[in-house]
């Protein structure tokens, strides 16, 4: 059997088997020192080198070049994690292509071998390939030009800061609150003691659950439309807004904020955001228009109880990072 063909099959079939059967094994939920995607990639490369060595396969340099280029493509497209944006991908692939070319032109011998089929096509020794190439390329160029000139419009991208810088103080219903030192007046006990308590049923027994019940009631009359019944930012109106409402389940929102920060955001809403990093485009209303101070604190208490997160404090653990 033709050794070139064998080499080609070793590559294609090997990649298919590795990608579909072995790749899932190396990408478990819990990534280990052995079971990770980069070890998998090294294994695949080792497989290629070993099979070619053992079977004494020596494919033409053009095909070797193709293999090398494809391995790079495969790595950047499928193996590298997290996925990279396409602009970066193009940059990496340009570098990889240059590397492949260096590999091909490492000495005059290989470079000549690589050139041979190309030259033969151009001068017409491979007549059929020449005809196809010489007709297809101009058509492709014409088509590409059309695509480039044809005007197309995408929605403009707007970048914004996720967590705005809070002011030092905020004035709600005539009272000024310094954000550094204000605590939730209804956090009367350790939250974890009430993990399995029932709102409504235990509201008479525990003061804490009474506040949670009241906070939840306010939440489900005002907030759930956007922030969702699950507090995950997927309420029945959430799809309407851009940016979408905050997801409190996410560890990046209330879990890393002080309660006073949230008090400020709830009271002042989108219109109360600072001038820098605009546009916020936030649909969050200034809730001080509808809720009194106590109600706002109770909603915040409820949000932490429901999600199980603890508010960030600058107490004894005192790390800012």
């Amino acid at each position: 059997m033709n050794k070139t063909l064998v080499s080609f099959l070793v590559f294609v079939v090997g990649l298919a088997v590795f990608h579909n059967a072995i790749f899932p094994i190396f990408t478990p939920k819990e990534i280990g020192w052995i079971l990770n995607r980069y070890v998998y990639f090294l294994l695949f490369v080792a497989y290629l080198i070993i099979t070619h060595f053992v079977l004494r396969l020596k494919p033409p340099i053009a095909m070797m070049g193709l293999f090398v280029w494809s391995i790079g493509f495969y790595f950047y497209k499928f193996v590298l994690y997290p996925p990279i944006p396409w602009t970066l991908f193009i940059t990496y692939m340009v570098m990889w292509s240059i590397g492949t070319f260096l590999y091909i032109s490492q000495d005059p011998e290989t470079f000549r071998e690589f050139r041979k089929p190309i030259v033969k096509t151009i001068v017409g020794e491979y007549k059929f390939a020449q005809i196809i190439l010489l007709t297809a390329m101009p058509i492709l160029v014409g088509f590409g030009t059309y695509k480039t000139i044809y005007p197309s419009y995408q929605e403009p991208v707007e970048l914004r800061t996720v967590h705005p810088a809070p002011p030092a103080t905020t004035k709600v219903h005539g009272k000024t609150y310094p954000l550094e030192s204000t605590n939730n007046p209804f956090r009367v006990d350790e939250q974890d003691n009430y993990k399995d308590s029932f709102p409504f049923l235990d509201a008479d027994k525990h003061e804490y659950m009474k506040y949670v019940t009241e906070g939840g009631t306010i939440f489900f009359q005002n907030c759930h439309y956007c922030h969702g019944d699950q507090l995950n930012g997927l309420g029945m109106f959430s799809h309407v807004f851009n940016p979408t409402p905050a997801n409190f389940i996410d560890p990046g929102t209330i879990a890393m904020l002080q309660e006073a920060f949230i008090f400020w955001r709830v009271s002042k809403g989108g219109p109360g955001l600072p001038n820098e990093s605009t546009p916020w485009s936030s649909a969050m209303p200034p809730w001080e228009e509808h809720l009194n101070t106590e109600e706002i604190w109770k909603v915040i208490l409820f949000e932490y109880w429901y999600t199980g997160w603890h508010p960030r404090t600058f107490g004894t653990e005192g790390s800012e990072g």
Binding site: P138, V141, G142, G144, T145, Y146, I149, Y150
Partner: peptide, 13 residues
């Protein structure tokens, strides 16, 4: 859009 693609194709030929 109507004259550039043929021109580019001819240049390439």
């Amino acid at each position: 859009l109507y004259y550039m693609p043929p021109i580019m194709a001819v240049v390439f030929v």
